[in-house]
Amino acid sequence: MSKKKQEQGSLGDHLNADVLKKLRSKKSELKEQEEVRQEEERKRRLEEKKRKEANKSFEELLNESDLDWKSYKE
């Protein structure tokens, strides 16, 4: 069985070197595009979070506050 595998060789052995180079190039290109897309998504979420924080009403800010007015009451 190992003799058959040796005769068949790997996929890289059967592909033209140029085709293999193009496939590797495409793989790195797609990986780079995915990284750029993830970075843009992260920036978009951060910007949206900042926008929501800036648009909060006084009531929302007060409700999120850890301060307890009862502890300051005399």
Score class of each variant (00 low, 15 high):
K3D: 13
L30E: 03
S57M: 01
Q6W: 11
E34I: 07
R45N: 06
S57E: 01
G9H: 01
Q33G: 06
S28D: 08
Q8M: 15
S65Y: 02
R24P: 03
S65Q: 01
E59N: 11
S2P: 04
F58S: 12
R51M: 07
S25C: 12
E64Q: 03
Q6M: 15
E48Q: 06
F58Q: 11
N63S: 11
H14I: 08
A17Q: 13
E40G: 00
E41D: 13
E53P: 00
E53D: 09
N63F: 07
R42Y: 04
E53C: 03
E59C: 07
E64I: 01
K52C: 11
L30A: 06
Q8R: 12
K3V: 14
R42C: 03
Q38C: 07
N55P: 00
K43W: 03
S25E: 13
E40L: 01
K4R: 14
R45K: 15
V19I: 15
K50T: 07
K22S: 11
G12E: 03
S65E: 01
K49C: 09
L20C: 02
L61G: 02
L11D: 05
Q8S: 12
M1K: 10
L20T: 00
F58I: 12
E39L: 10
S25T: 13
K50H: 11
R44Q: 05
E60A: 00
E39R: 07
K50C: 08
S28N: 13
N16M: 13
E7V: 09
L62F: 10
S65L: 01
K22N: 07
K56W: 02
E32V: 15
S25W: 06
K3I: 14
K52D: 04
Q8C: 13
E53Q: 04
L15Q: 02
K27Q: 14
Q33C: 09
K27R: 14
S57D: 02
S2D: 08
H14Y: 07
E64K: 01
R37W: 05
D13G: 03
E60L: 00
K21I: 08
L23S: 04
N55W: 07
E64R: 00
K21N: 09
E48H: 04
E53F: 02
K52F: 06
R24W: 12
E40K: 00
